[in-house]
Amino acid sequence: TLFEALYDYEARTEDDLSFHKGEKFQILNSSEGDWWEARSLTTGETGYIPSIYLAPV
């Protein structure tokens, strides 16, 4: 399942991933609670993103 960003997000740590509204992600690991490891389909970068900023596509 792909997810789309509902809002912009600016990374706060080196493990976080910055993204823009409308960016799409492949989720790599969603077992860490509210922060999911994801790969951006726009940039190819991976990192942790807040799941509350996402909606399934």
Rank of each mutant, 00 (worst) to 15 (best):
D16H: 15
L17T: 03
G47C: 03
L6H: 03
S18K: 05
G47T: 03
T1V: 12
T13V: 08
L17V: 06
W36R: 01
W36C: 03
K21V: 09
Y48H: 07
L28V: 08
S30I: 11
S18C: 04
L54W: 01
A11V: 02
Y48F: 13
P50G: 06
W35M: 13
H20W: 09
T46N: 05
E32C: 13
I52T: 13
E23Q: 07
W36M: 04
F3D: 00
P56H: 06
P56C: 06
E14Q: 13
R39S: 05
S30M: 15
G47A: 04
L6N: 04
D8V: 03
D8A: 08
T13Y: 15
F25N: 00
T13D: 11
T42P: 01
N29G: 09
E32L: 14
F25P: 00
Y48T: 07
D8S: 10
A5R: 00
Q26D: 07
E45W: 09
K24S: 05
E32D: 14
S40I: 05
S40W: 01
T46I: 14
A5P: 00
F19Y: 03
T46L: 07
P50R: 13
Y53A: 14
W35H: 07
Q26K: 09
Y7N: 08
T43L: 02
E23N: 06
I49V: 15
G33E: 11
T1L: 13
L2K: 04
E23V: 03
S51P: 07
E14K: 13
T13E: 09
A55I: 14
R39N: 03
F19I: 08
L17W: 06
S31M: 13
T42C: 10
L6V: 08
I49L: 08
N29Y: 07
E37C: 15
R39A: 05
L6M: 10
W35R: 14
S51V: 10
S30G: 10
T42W: 13
L41R: 03
G22L: 03
K21Y: 05
P56L: 09
S51M: 10
W35G: 03
Y53M: 11
E4W: 11
Y48N: 07
S40R: 14
T13A: 11
P56Y: 07
L54R: 00
R12V: 12
L41W: 06
E37V: 15
D34V: 10
F25K: 00
D16S: 15
S40Y: 02
F25M: 03
P50S: 09
I27N: 01
P56R: 07
W35I: 10
T1H: 12
E32Q: 14
F25V: 02
S51R: 14
E37H: 14
E4H: 08
Y48R: 14
I49S: 01
N29C: 08
G44H: 07
G33T: 13
D8T: 07
W35L: 10
F19A: 06
E10V: 14
K24A: 06
E32G: 14
I27Q: 01
E10G: 06
R39Q: 08
E23L: 01
E14P: 13
